[in-house]
Design a protein around this nucleic acid. Structure first.
Lengths: 213, 213
DNA sequence: CCTCCGAGGATTGTTGACAATCTCGTCAGC
DNA sequence: GCTGACGAGATTGTCAACAATCCTCGGAGG
């Protein structure tokens, strides 16, 4: 999937928060940063623009795209139905080995919440969703979810700071795991959708006074 | 959304079937065809590659991407859940005026099927899905569905040739319309998903002997 | 007759320079 | 003091030439 080191480097730089939303991406700077020619840098920018991470305006250059809250909600709604589809399919195709791997992640999650290790919980959360997608083996849905996730890194970061979130989402995760382990597609889809629906509510609750400056 | 005439021209040429799947897209030819510089042509190709219409291989040029049947099914599965989401949201937001517009399309569809005007029915089908998306006003889902639809033009063309399809899908469309008109999101989602699920079945039934040559 | 190899043409990849446009500071006029 | 035109610098847009790679076709050897 990687086209050029410059593209991947810029991508992870944006995702890692080195370039903030709205920040200008000057081609000359990127050239020195990634030791790439202008040709390569432009290709990377155009590529990431197609992915929704970068916004390009004619004669005004490229910026890190700023995703407004309303769009973040939309994106998460789309993720809700897509990951629902993925969960259902995972329930159809899961192997015994994968099922126990799911169970283990669930166990670790519970321990992390009990120990209030929220950073660890967040990592496990990502690992869980990843594993479910891998089990489902739905390339098309997978690709779309992954690009959408990229556009939300900043918002998801804010979410992880919300107090009480892990306590809310842990039982939801456990229901997803149980449904997939029991090979019940319908229940898996419902559980996953309920889970992400609660993420949407949390997102909406952020009517942050600091605001979209 | 249009970036350059060359990009849009090439896009509709591919969608219109002027370039067949697998066909090579030689930069020099496109330059003369669209009276654009090589720079512009390359940008267009890269853009359409991001949209999944074109496949680029290093040093081997660009081809019209060939979507295998299995992926067409995947794409339609994604469309199923996305259009389900869209239908539900349309049911929440539909105005009286839009509702009667939906009803009128339904009426015209029934007439078209009765008169066996299948080409007209296909147009109405597209118009119906478009209107539902417009009512929903879900920019993110809309964009994704539109790009997915682009990748399927060829397969959808084959579908429209399947005998008996209109008779199958007409009542499904009518249920979608009724649910949105009645402002019942859950029913609208279910109806839309059932409808597209039947499209998926039809797709799977195409194990065409002519084959992917 | 088949296979392997190489030269030539065609096509794409990359570079650097130049043109067009925007941004921002400066200064004249009111 | 304020407004608006002007111009220098910075940045992006575009192009044409050159380099690298691939593909085809023909021929030599077995």
């Amino acid at each position: 999937m990687s086209k050029t080191p410059a593209r991947d480097g810029l991508r992870s730089a944006i995702l890692g928060g080195e370039y903030l939303p709205g920040e200008r991406l000057v081609e000359a700077q990127l050239m020195t940063r990634f030791e790439a020619s202008r040709f390569t840098v432009r290709a990377a920018l155009q590529d990431l623009a197609g992915e929704g991470l970068v916004q390009m305006e004619r004669n005004r250059g490229a910026h890190v795209r700023k995703v407004p809250l309303g769009e973040a909600v939309e994106i998460t709604e789309v993720r809700m139905v897509l990951e629902g589809l993925i969960a259902a399919r995972a329930a159809e195709r899961v192997t015994d080995e994968q099922a126990s791997e799911l169970d283990e992640i669930g166990l670790l999650m519970r321990r992390a919440v009990d120990a209030q290790e929220y950073r660890r919980y967040s990592d496990l959360n990502h690992r869980l969703h990843s594993l479910v997608r891998q089990i489902a083996g739905h390339g098309t849905a997978d690709r779309i979810v992954e690009t959408l996730r990229g556009q939300l890194v900043r918002h998801q970061f804010m979410l992880s700071l919300l107090p009480g979130r892990p306590q809310t989402s842990l039982p939801q995760h456990e229901r997803v795991i149980a449904a997939i382990r029991d090979r019940d597609p319908k229940a898996a889809e419902t559980a996953m959708r309920d889970h992400i629906a609660s993420v949407i509510e949390a997102l909406r609750s952020i009517d942050f006074p600091g605001g979209p400056a």
